[in-house]
């Protein structure tokens, strides 16, 4: 009888292993149904770039690494509810991207560790598999590899949350990451109309708009609702930015075979709007990170 159960267990195990391999291919199903409606259902995805993607403008000459700006790792222990943990997971992901963008090895390692530790609290520890942990433990000081590990970690987290349909968590995490990125940039930059970083901050109106709609889409979640309500203050500021029609002025001969977009309208932010934006970002960030 023991032999029978042993063989049955082996058979069952083989069945599961083989079916798991099969599932690695994308799912496809074809069902036959009676058509019920003529109009197509529409689903909208609002995409938000990662802090790493936004820190593309770390190359701006007036930006530098200020160790006093990122959220201290010691604060991680204070985040004792899901909303704070999700938000600050995003905040620390941005601090990680900031450290990596400026090639700060020790800080990058420190923020990777805090992101990993928070991931356990919010059920994302599976993302930190053996391969990623080994990469973190053997992290070098090359700036490109620091950026790559920061980028890959965020990418894996997004894919994991999408895979398990944790869209509210994703929205809060993206909101936290975007806020910290903006916090760092607005506190490193001084306003002059010709400063390219100021233009990049103004351009965040478009990314923010997507983020705001993404939060709105998931507003039934009370934690998302809280963040959405806070962000409505930022929405008011961004809505006041002027849109200036520029016409098609670009030299298209330089970009043969490529499609030029966004050539008609430029977003303009004045000094008062910049100061107001910075103040509101600082207030919301203090609330989210408990740095009051």
């Amino acid at each position: 009888m023991r032999k029978f159960y042993f063989i049955m267990m082996l058979a069952l195990f083989s069945l599961v292993v083989f079916s798991c391999h099969k599932e690695k291919k994308p799912q496809e199903q074809i069902q036959k149904t009676i058509p019920q409606k003529d109009t197509a259902e529409v689903e909208i995805f609002y995409l938000v770039p990662s802090p790493d993607d936004i820190f593309g403008f770390a190359s701006s000459p007036d930006l530098y690494f200020d160790p006093s700006l990122p959220n201290p790792v010691a604060n991680a222990g204070k985040y004792n509810n899901t909303r704070l943990q999700d938000l600050n997971f995003g905040v620390y992901s941005a601090d990680l991207a900031y450290s990596a963008a400026f090639g700060k090895r020790e800080e990058t390692k420190m923020y990777l560790d805090v992101v990993k530790s928070l991931s356990e609290k919010i059920g994302l520890s599976e993302v930190f598999n053996e391969s990623l942990v080994n990469r973190i433990n053997n992290i070098g000081s090359n700036k490109d590899s620091l950026i790559a590990i920061s980028n890959d970690t965020y990418f894996d987290i997004i894919r994991y949350l999408e895979k398990y349909d944790r869209i509210s968590t994703l929205a809060i995490l993206a909101a936290g990451g975007w806020l910290e990125t903006m916090y760092l940039v607005v506190n490193l930059t001084h306003y002059t109309p010709s400063n390219p970083t100021i233009q990049k901050i103004a351009d965040q109106k478009i990314i923010f708009s997507n983020l705001y709609k993404f939060l709105q889409q998931n507003i039934t979640d009370p934690n998302v609702k809280y963040v959405y309500d806070e962000y409505s203050k930022l929405n008011e500021i961004f809505n006041d930015f002027e849109l200036v029609k520029t016409g098609n002025q670009q030299d298209k001969s330089k970009v043969k075979g490529k499609i030029i977009v966004g050539s008609n309208v430029k977003i303009v932010m004045n000094k008062q709007q910049f100061i107001k934006l910075r103040n509101v970002i600082n207030d919301i960030r203090a609330d989210f990170t408990l740095n009051k």
């Binding site: 351009d203 478009i206 520029t246 490529k258 499609i259 030029i260 977009v261 966004g262 430029k266």
Partner: peptide, 9 residues
Amino acid sequence: DIIPAHATS
């Protein structure tokens, strides 16, 4: 290949 002249969506 897409090139934004200004930020856009």
